[in-house]
Amino acid sequence: MRSRGTYYLVYPLVIFLLLVLLFPFFVMISTSLKPVKEVYANPPHWIPQTIHLTNFSDIWGKYPLGSYFKNSFIVAVGTTIINMLLCIPAAYAIARLRFVGKNFMMYLFLIVQMFSPLIVVISLFKVISRLGLLDNLLALILTNGVFTLAFAIWLLSGYFRGIPKEIEEAALIDGCSRFQTITRILLPIAMPGVVTTVIYTFISAWNEFMFALTFITSMEKRPLTLGLYNFIGRWAVQWQYLMAAAFLALIPVVILFMLIERELVQGLAGGAVKG
């Protein structure tokens, strides 16, 4: 597979596929740099003829982008905290303790992580309204926390299981409490796994759209995805602003995602891909 002939085939194909896959991001960057006149020029230009960086500063005053970012951040951090508080003990129990029904539970978690929140959104709406949490960011924190929980437990317990338990057993014999063995020994060693789980949860909550669409009604409580979506709802979409805002919203998630993609692939596709 390493002959010169292959290269002549590989490079054009890879470049073509990259062009196709990255095309909308190219559109995003190009549009975000254009002045209004050029955005609505027909025929359009691939590359802006004048670079108009002020779009990036204008959006903060024209839209409540600051509060969108803040809301998304609150939701993502809140979701991550709830998720970790529930997930660490559960993952520890699954990885380290023997109990009846463990296999059933693991199977259940694997299946549950596939549930689309759409099938329960009608009744979840009732639960949230009965708890008085409609139009409250806490509703998003709770629902995102629960719908990321199964996969988080799954990922983290896998990590815990990969760590030899002899150190913890020695510590237990030396008089450490269970709690201490978790916080002082297991978690520091499992830090890469914890970080992966935290990033996964954070990204999922940051990107979430459907719960926000359903539970959030007032403008100042919209997270980013919903806020940007409502750019389009206006009668004249200012695409250069939407693209600039999208660019800023995407940077953090794309970078974070790159850090954990290998673990995600492995966590989702199982032992088959342990290369």
Partner: peptide
């Protein structure tokens, strides 16, 4: 090649709409 997966789906959909 990972970028489309790394990107947020709702935002990707908006990029495509434009």
């Amino acid at each position: 090649i990972i970028i489309p997966w790394a990107s947020s789906i709702p935002i990707s959909a908006m990029l495509w709409q434009w």
